[in-house]
Amino acid sequence: MYVNTLFFGHFKDYAPDGIKMEVAEGANICSLLSALALRDCRFQSLIRCRVAVNEEFAGADTVLCDGDEVAFLPPMSGG
């Protein structure tokens, strides 16, 4: 199955339009993070990001479904 990843902050420079990632059935955010780090070692530090699945915050053990949108959110700096 596939999930659509989105990146923000300096990670967005590496993949401005996000990446469509193939993951195994039952994959969670942890396994997606491992797959991203294998694809590009600069993604190893995504581990310090908060994560949102389908536009809501989600924990690292959240199980993903086909077509989910997974956004990686580094420490925020609005205001």
């Binding site: 923000f8 902050g9 300096h10 420079d13 949102a52 956004a71 959110l73 580094p74 420490p75 925020m76 700096s77 609005g78 205001g79």
Partner: peptide, 22 residues
């Protein structure tokens, strides 16, 4: 809002750009 709203600053400076993350 500064801590909990997913918005990020990119500072555009004469010597290059910087993302502010926290």
């Amino acid at each position: 809002i500064k801590e909990e709203v997913p918005i990020w600053k990119r500072e555009v400076c004469p010597d290059g750009d910087f993302w502010i993350e926290g």
